[in-house]
Design a protein around this nucleic acid. Structure first.
Lengths: 329, 329
DNA sequence: CCCTTAATGTCAACCGGTTGACACACGATT
DNA sequence: AATCGTGTGTCAACCGGTTGACATTAAGGG
């Protein structure tokens, strides 16, 4: 691996001059510039970014902690975040916490040790105190952490309202709310719980009743998830509309309906959440509440860029959701 | 951010001693060890891994280049790779190339500049020469790059054979082969093309005819993909079995069948590939050829660990595939 | 009492690159 | 002839931590 010294030797100039070329500072003639460029090409020289980062106290790396990139929502999120990070010259260190608090903590320590410039937190956050003395920009995705940590979210409450309103408008008389995440229950800090509030408030306004089921997801393909749903719908045979808090859950509900020979959308209307790829890969194609993942990701990266320049940013960055009507309603 | 000097001051020892504690070398008394540990805790000190990496010429980072983590196959792959990397103390830098050669090249340069210890290449590789003078361990996923680069793959040829054999055994008389990747065509270096060879050879052996369609995927949820499939099946109304080279494609085929009112599996049998989460989230649940992503990922990380210790590794690491029978056959 | 061994300190070099201070040379201005 | 802007070099310090060489001291063994 050639170093700046080798380039200097080959180009017949001093190390300082090479550094000046590299960083565009001071006076350099075009001729020297060319000589140096030539030497770099011949040696296939790449400056050691670690050494530069060390000196500059800026690594241009950001850490990304999520429950699991294997979940379609997070895989799209990670894709978009990485895209915008790359646009701005940031590299992404990926961490799957599985919602395990101790693993989260370890990852946070690891990221700090490795001098990331900022952390995007898309995983749970029980252990608030671990984040406060971090003196490192953190932004949180769809979760409240502390009031001095900016958050990017979407209008979960409105999402819940839109969903139940649609179901009611389409003639449903009794709704089911199906929730449940990947490995671990939701809790209040998770803003997704607002979806349920919106859902319920809309029902209260119109006097429609509802039942709820919180599923402990046991791996995407596990049949036991569907069995539990079937049992649930057998207990509540008059439910004729379902609001699922994710498209994955909604897909399971569709399976349960097929198993129960309930026609969709005639006997049962279903609406999912997130509008990830799978929503349009199931049959019937799933009506869903779309979160603008792309825009939210772009915003997250911009927040980070601003924080790193010492600019002020708004603490709450909420995006509107949209109803995508397909064939399950 | 406290530095080792601060710890030394607070503990009342020399910097060298702190370093000795940190790295467990030379003689240190338990008393000093405790004093230092105490000082570290009080200061919330974390050694700067960049500085250490710089000195050690080892960053413990590995770069991961894939087409897009938004595709379910790669999202599961990335999840597993990160899991095993973390187990061995490696961090993962994620890069989505979108199968764009120039983006791939930029990512490779970036990773090298940032001193990753190794690269896992799950993306295309047209530009072989860019990889050869890299003097950096590379391992390739399901793609041939050059014969001095180890590769992790699964038995694609057998996968193809298993798929068509099953369809034939179930009574199909004319098969369709549906291929098409995310953003960009397959080519020979992509070992997935072996699936088609296996598929075809099995047909030749039994004298069954087939038709082929290569889909240019235009985004997962795009209806035009389904429309093209519908058109294709209208042109070939006698096709009664489909082998799709991914579960995503198979899901689209299921949609096309629903649209054409072909019953599954009676009038049309379908088999997908990869057995990712979506295979068991569609209805009917998809029969698929399972690639052992977990085992392959574990192997990939182990290969890297060995390469970094200067050990010899086998160049071709192929894993068996298994047929997962569900409801579409 | 001498010799080991353990425990710690001092010092300097190093990893690879950056930067400021300062010197010097050359050609063009004034 | 003095001055200024340009172009380049030398040197040293620095980023934060590691390591080897070497010195010093105290405790323990023979």
């Amino acid at each position: 691996m050639p170093k700046i010294e080798d380039v200097a030797a080959k180009a017949g100039v001093s190390v300082t001059t090479v550094s000046r070329v590299l960083n565009n500072r001071g006076y350099i003639s075009q001729a020297t510039r060319d000589k140096v460029a030539q030497a770099m090409k011949e040696l296939n020289y790449q400056p050691n970014e670690m050494a530069r980062s060390l000196f500059r106290k800026k690594s241009n790396m950001i850490g990304l902690i999520i429950p699991t990139v294997a979940h379609p929502f997070f895989s799209e999120l990670v894709y978009q975040l990485e895209y915008y990070a790359d646009q701005k010259g940031y590299k992404v260190l990926l961490c799957n916490s599985n919602r395990d608090i101790s693993k989260e903590r370890k990852y946070i320590d690891m990221l700090k040790k490795n001098q990331v410039d900022a952390i995007v937190m898309g995983s749970n956050v029980q252990d608030v105190k671990h984040y406060l003395n971090l003196n490192l920009p953190i932004i949180s995705f769809d979760r409240t952490v502390a009031n001095n940590i900016p958050i990017v979210t979407s209008d979960n409450y409105m999402g819940g309202r839109l969903a139940s309103r649609l179901l009611i408008d389409k003639g449903c008389r009794k709704l089911a709310h199906i929730s449940g995440g990947v490995g671990g229950p939701n809790h209040a800090a998770l803003l997704a719980s607002k979806r349920f509030q919106g859902f319920r408030d809309e029902l209260t306004d119109t006097g429609i009743e509802h039942v709820s089921l919180e599923l402990e997801l046991t791996g995407l393909g596990d049949k036991r998830n569907v069995d539990e749903l079937v049992r649930f719908f057998q207990e509540h045979p008059d439910a004729d509309g379902v609001f699922a808090t994710s498209d994955v859950l909604a897909a399971l509900v569709i399976q349960a309906c097929h198993q129960l020979k309930k026609t969709i959308p005639q006997e049962m209307k279903i609406i999912g959440y997130d509008d990830v790829g799978i929503a349009s890969l199931v049959w019937p194609r799933l009506t869903s509440i779309r979160q603008p993942i792309r825009e939210m990701s772009e915003c997250a990266i911009e927040l980070i860029a601003k924080l790193l320049q010492g600019e002020e940013v708004s603490m709450i960055n909420s995006f509107p959701v949209t109803l995508i009507q397909r064939d399950t309603t």
